[in-house]
Write a protein that binds this DNA or RNA. Structure first.
Lengths: 376, 376
DNA sequence: TACTTCACTGCAAACCTTTGCAGGATCACC
DNA sequence: GGTGATCCTGCAAAGGTTTGCAGTGAAGTA
């Protein structure tokens, strides 16, 4: 029942190879023949079978996007950006959700391997060595994780965490908690490192709480512990956790930012809608999605086109585009941070409940335009 | 470079067909041979090429999931439910986002057609006739849209809208606005119909405002118009719009629920996190995802397995499983609705700012357990 | 012993498309 | 008219897998 290239050939009185060329190399076929073939194809409702095409060309024109948790609002902007970038280059994107499960991650890479030309691994939870191993099966670009020898797109959360800590110290906080995320998260390690350094430099004490689930639930679950710890400010692994924490603190009767200041990371849409509006480290998710797709496609186009068969170009030693890109982050100050116990009353500080200032941090805190790529 | 069935055959000293059977029909091969083949396969790191397999069996073991907007938090629970249901049956799910663009929708169905065994079309924006036409190319299950002759999974938003209107009328509102969603949305039409009937029955006046974008922006953009219209209560197309509206009203100095009551639809996670917490019509998104996958796979298994080649079973006249399932909705009363101008002071009403009652509507308003499937 | 049954394995076609190669026709030019 | 170039088209192999059919050998039965 499905109409194939053969049916079109029969209908238009040419050989199947001519029909094939009409679609894949139109300039090689006589204009008259071409229109005739196209008319027949249109008539019969012919659609090239991408699977069969992929079998011989080794190019599916699909790319896979493996995501730890679609429900985390951090990802949709990344997905959309990747999708639109891919579409411009005539590629389709298949998204798959792993539920933060490393096993599912691995399985999905295998499942996708032969059906896509490359895979974007976003915030992976599996080990670096496994990622390297999988990269021999299908071209990989890793987002939010640094793997030596592989192309990576990173966001400078270290810088963001530092800016956040400095902001809090500037507000007069000396006792700060860092709400950790998943143990296997690269972002998590970077934040811990940078926040620790910044706290030491600023003479503040940093308490580590975690690991926690990177969700609202994870945040609200740790509220009691935050209160007991006696800190006056908190930097959370991401916005969801920060929002959950604010909820949890609210339930305990602890006011934000009057008693505890809270900073998140990501700047998801939601962070502008909760009350108080969330002070957060904005990450360039859109730019990350676009960049990752670009890197994958570039790497893909560099692999030998002459080679036949699936997976051409994935041979070890051929692919050597291992550029790693670091994208800058940006502290956005809103209403969830306010003066701490050591605030100097002489210097007027941001009004804790005024209209959303939504301005970048002051001159003392280094921030940078969001989305600029810095090759390293 | 990629290791094929042929390499394994050579290594284990058997014919390729034996290797093939080792994977696709293990009971047909001698246990000893089987372990030897499996060992070699493991050794060489062989992975069956799903594309090639699909080419001949006509089964890809993938299903496509086409979504209007991944960024809308309504969808992730549906996606996750579909994914886990599919995984149980050894299927993988490919998600694709259309950005609410009907053209992209059509294109994606074509692109997916030969790479998946069926497609779930969620909240489609294209015309019914086009959907019918596309269903001849690949098995389709439609979610949130009624298309005669096709399997559909629907949520009873009509009932939900009625419950919401009755709730508002019960609170003493007589002048209510309905914030419409996308014009091509089936849900939108259903809500309008049901809300209109319920308002007439309850002696209230219903003002239609829209269509609006089903996002926070869409909601906040219409705030001014809502204020000017003088209504005391609003039923919004979905939660995002309701939340945006509350933001917009807040910016105009209009308090919710003191001056205007707002009801949303969907019960996204976010609706519990905003202040005031949102009164909303909960839709059984998880159940919808699961049911849709079940229907697709059932329909798929019914098509003739003997038939060879891609698209076997998509022939017209073979597939006749056109069951349509309606899932029940559930009004969840929280803090964004309060007494209206015609409230009877004698009867004590829900405290507008008390702790989240989160209880189903009173006995006068028919509600039902969420997630129960009712075949129709 | 002869015949049947059975379990296992090999053979080869098929799925749909792409593409290197070669053949045929047309044309220009000497 | 011969030569070469150019343009178009057909041929056939290739890609990795599945599967109906046939063949082999061994075991079971009469």
């Amino acid at each position: 029942m499905p109409v194939t290239i053969r049916d079109v050939a029969r209908a238009s009185g040419v050989h199947i190879s001519t029909v094939s060329r009409t679609f894949s190399a139109p300039h090689l076929v006589n204009p008259e023949t071409r229109v005739r073939v196209l008319a027949c194809a249109e008539d019969l409702g012919y659609r090239p079978n991408r699977a069969a095409r992929a079998l011989i060309t080794g190019r599916t024109h699909n790319i896979g996007l493996i995501i730890a948790d679609i429900a985390n609002p951090f990802f949709p902007p990344l997905i959309k950006a990747a999708e639109s970038q891919a579409r411009h280059r005539d590629y389709h994107v298949f998204v798959a959700d792993t539920n933060e499960d490393p096993t599912a991650e691995e399985e999905l890479v295998h499942a996708l391997a032969k059906q896509v030309d490359g895979v974007l691994l976003c915030s992976p939870r599996m080990s670096n060595s496994l990622i390297e191993q999988l990269s021999r099966e299908v071209p990989l670009v890793v987002v939010n994780r640094q793997v030596t020898g592989l192309p990576c797109v990173l966001m400078d959360v270290g810088q963001g965490a530092r800016a956040a800590i400095e902001h809090l110290i500037g507000l007069g906080h000396r006792s700060i908690a860092l709400l950790g995320g998943p143990r296997s998260s690269w972002t998590n390690r970077e934040m811990r490192r940078a926040a620790g350094t910044a706290a030491r430099a600023g003479g503040a004490e940093l308490t580590l709480l975690g690991p926690n689930a990177p969700t609202e639930t994870g945040g609200s679950a740790i509220a009691e512990q935050v209160r007991r710890s006696g800190v006056s400010a908190v930097l959370a692994y991401n916005d969801l956790m920060a929002i959950g924490l604010i909820e949890g603190l609210d339930a305990l009767g602890v006011r934000v930012p009057q008693e505890v200041s809270v900073v998140g990371v990501d700047d998801i849409t939601l962070s502008r809608l909760t009350r108080p509006k969330l002070t957060t480290v904005a990450t360039p998710t859109g730019a990350a999605g676009r960049t990752a797709v670009d890197m994958l496609l570039q790497q893909d186009s560099e692999s030998p086109r002459g080679a036949r068969g699936l997976g051409a170009g994935t041979a070890l030693g051929v692919r050597r585009t291992t550029a790693q890109v670091m994208l800058q982050t940006d502290l956005v100050i809103r209403d969830s941070t306010g003066p701490g116990p050591y605030a100097r009353p002489a210097r007027p500080l941001a009004a804790p409940r005024g209209p959303d200032p939504h301005c970048p941090a002051g001159p003392g805190i280094p921030t940078a335009a969001t989305g600029d790529a810095v090759a390293s």
